[in-house]
């Protein structure tokens, strides 16, 4: 049911934005921004359900807690970087979009550094 709602919202938003592109072009970007925000609400609602279930699942699998947290953090960073980068690219500012995405990649690297260090320690212990 939600899928139909999201698809409808997207199409209505795109049609309205297209119609306004002729008369007043900046309002078409506002409408696409509004539609993105509404769809993102549905995405976040669905995602919180999934994260809750995965957290419940992780009780069975003995896993160091912070690995799951790092994975989630990386997913969140990529999600926001993609969202804002795509919006900037929609408005025609690809340079700004690339800056945002580069910063997202660097933050990803920074977040995943401890995991790499731990992996190397593990290898050191084995040999």
């Amino acid at each position: 049911m939600d899928m139909i709602k999201v698809a409808l919202i997207g199409m209505i938003g795109a049609l309205l934005a297209l119609e306004l592109k002729g008369a007043k072009s900046e309002f078409s970007t506002y409408i696409s921004l509004g539609a993105c925000v509404v769809v993102l609400f549905y995405v976040v609602a669905r995602l919180s359900g999934i994260v809750g279930q995965i957290a419940a699942l992780s009780d069975y699998i003995v896993l160091e807690a912070d690995y799951f947290g790092i994975l989630l953090k990386m997913a969140g960073i990529t999600y926001i970087a993609e969202f804002s980068g795509a919006l900037c690219r929609d408005m025609g500012y690809t340079a700004l979009a690339l800056q945002i995405e580069n910063f997202g990649k660097l933050t990803l690297l920074a977040v995943s550094c401890p995991v790499i260090v731990r992996l190397l320690e593990l290898i050191g212990e084995l040999t």
Partner: peptide, 11 residues
């Protein structure tokens, strides 16, 4: 929206 994302992904 960004608040809920921050809480969800514990950023």
């Amino acid at each position: 929206l960004f608040e809920t994302i921050r809480d969800l992904f514990s950023l």
